[in-house]
């Protein structure tokens, strides 16, 4: 008899399914679905600002505020940057461009290259968040709040939210998370908080460590695990050859490897 593989993929096979269900149970909203208003869903999304991934993102912004002030950026401009761009790698690239006295066009190109990854991320996110009556303009406005953390949280949680409530739920996550981190940056400036290098090293390490675990956990089929492993392996190899396009090529080639795997596993299942 064929058993459906558990959605956790590779390493979950062989574990009893109740363990899996138990793990999933605390990630979903607990109130009955029909009785909840839009405001209530918005607030559930906003409440995720207190979740571990959101707290990790805030510590990353503490690190960013330190980096920005080291480079002589005033508080208001650093906070404005976080709210207007809302992508930490792009912020860091822009500060590098400012420090290197790049022209505005060269700075825009450098930032644009670091932000291309948002296009496939948002494209993959749209089917997750779209409800039956979602207007394109709400998606365009909300897309500003999609960056890695909100993307990973959304991919994990949106499937447990009724389709017509997903937009408000994500608005709750995105708007609150962006506002909170803008305030965190301002606060670090106001307190002129400085930490020993060891603390900054730990703060900078939190983000990749968190993404590593949560990206694996957010996958619902094995193709995501294949894509993730190929991205991890391809990046250093491509970086050595073409450092200017390392992320882009990692995405493109990692995608091809994954599609080859999907085709191969389908072909194997058919025979």
């Amino acid at each position: 008899m064929m058993k459906r593989p558990p959605p956790g993929g590779l390493f979950l096979e062989g574990r009893s399914s109740w363990v899996y269900r138990l793990c999933m149970a605390d990630s979903g909203p607990s109130l009955p679905v029909e009785s909840r208003t839009k405001l209530s869903w918005f607030l559930s999304g906003a409440a995720l600002t207190g979740s571990i991934p959101a707290l990790i993102l805030m510590t990353a912004h503490v690190g960013f505020a330190g980096f920005a002030s080291e480079n002589g950026l005033p508080m208001i401009q650093a906070a404005f940057m976080v709210a207007a761009i809302w992508a930490l790698p792009a912020n860091i690239v822009l500060i590098g461009a400012i420090a290197g006295d790049y022209s505005i066009v060269a700075a825009a190109i450098a930032v644009g290259l670091s932000s291309i990854r948002l296009m496939p991320m948002v494209a993959a996110f749209v089917p997750e968040i779209r409800g039956p009556n979602t207007r394109r303009i709400s998606l365009l406005l909300l897309s500003h709040f999609i960056a890695i953390t909100a993307w990973v949280i959304g991919m994990e949680r949106l499937k447990n939210v009724p389709a017509e409530m997903r937009v408000v739920f994500f608005a709750g996550i995105g708007i609150t998370l962006t506002t909170a981190n803008t305030l965190v940056v301002a606060l670090v400036y106001l307190l002129s908080a400085s930490f020993p290098p060891l603390v900054f090293a730990c703060l900078f390490f939190l983000t990749p460590m968190y993404f590593l675990a949560s990206l694996w956990g957010s996958a619902r089929d094995r193709s995501i695990h294949v894509a993730m492993v190929s991205g991890l392996i391809l990046f250093p190899a491509i970086h050595a050859v073409a450092p200017a396009y390392d992320l882009l090529l990692t995405g493109a080639i990692g995608g091809l490897v994954t599609m080859a795997y999907v085709r191969w596993s389908k072909g194997r299942a058919a025979t």
Binding site: P120, M121, A124, A227, M228, V229, G231, G251, I253, G254
Partner: peptide, 10 residues
């Protein structure tokens, strides 16, 4: 989704 995941892994 595969491209997006590979990028995040990158």
């Amino acid at each position: 989704r595969a491209v997006a995941t590979a990028l995040v892994a990158g």
